[in-house]
Design a protein around this nucleic acid. Structure first.
Lengths: 177, 177
DNA sequence: TCCATCATGTAACCAGTTACATGATTTC
DNA sequence: GAAATCATGTAACTGGTTACATGATGGA
């Protein structure tokens, strides 16, 4: 139930069409809550049915400009302050780690090495985004905070992979003799 | 497509019934890839249909003991070494952070404080698990590694929340005068 | 006029959740 | 004999993905 609120959140900053929102989802939003085109359009119709948003203008090509309603804003605030109904945390990567003893040593090591390098790449990608903007003004603080979260997560992933590789090597060496 | 491989992974360590696996999912597995009872039983039937596991014994109360097949083990190894088809990363918490400018300062601060305390609780929970076992033998290394991953993630979350609270206070103070 | 882009929608499918349903066996 | 536990399954629903479909408009 979160794409609903992602869309609502974007519309709380100003009215827009599905097509407009889609571009935001493809850009900044993709790092936080990805969505596909068909899902977004379907969700906008549901939001309108629920009365949380409404069509305020119809432009060329059937373009529908949506705006958040008062009840929509209330729902957004409710959701923001009630983090109880979130989907469970799931990580395919962590699941792989958990099951990694099925692979021979070399392949397990390769896996952890690729974890490390992917985390590094992702970290550099986030750093580029960070350095491409001026975050001094208050406006984008929470976007900056979300970015910082990603940055630190990737840093932690890197360091974890280092730890795991060291431990793995230590243990495999010990079991040799 | 990952519960499939979670179940396959557990069966690679030895044959078991759906009921047996369910207990594992409720215990250790829940932190890595949660699953419900009905989902698990359905998935076991699909795995059997695909020939990746097979019923090796039928016990009392219709208990079906499953074992992994050769093709199942091959599929597990294939999945472990091909991390391309993973579901997108999604975090409701990060989405909330991203949209937090909709809330007044005090509520945003409260949100970040609850992020910090929840990460702390989760970290302590992981520490208890860590300290309750002897991880010296090689057997459970990858379970230990997954745990360490969770531990470090929660640590990073805590530190991030601290950073965000400090920054938020600094910026709100600055905008006062 | 043709092409890129704008703009929305539908259908089929897979994954996951909640609730319900059923019955056998062991233990007290 | 009653209750707890063992053991599996189905149905209805929500959320998300992929692929397909359709057409309008603006600019070269």
């Amino acid at each position: 139930m979160s794409l609903r609120h992602a869309a609502l959140g974007l519309l709380s900053r100003g009215s827009a069409s599905g097509y407009d929102l889609l571009k935001v989802f493809e850009a900044s939003m993709a790092n936080v809550w990805p969505a596909t085109q068909s899902q977004l359009y379907a969700e906008l119709n549901k939001l309108a049915d629920a009365g949380w948003i409404e069509v305020v203008d119809v432009g060329p090509r059937g373009r529908k400009e949506y705006a958040i309603t008062d009840s929509g804003r209330a729902e957004l605030r409710r959701w923001l302050t009630s983090p109880q109904d979130d989907p469970m945390f799931r990580s395919a990567q962590l699941l792989r780690v958990f099951l990694l003893d099925e692979l021979p040593y070399d392949q397990a090591r390769e896996f952890l090495e690729s974890c490390r390098s992917e985390a590094g790449e992702e970290r550099r990608r986030y750093e580029q985004i960070r350095d491409a903007y001026d975050w001094a003004d208050d406006a984008g603080f929470f976007a900056r905070a979300a970015l910082e979260n990603g940055l630190r997560s990737m840093q932690a992933q890197s360091e974890w992979a280092d730890w795991a590789l060291t431990e793995l090597a230590r243990r495999s060496k010990r079991s040799e003799h």
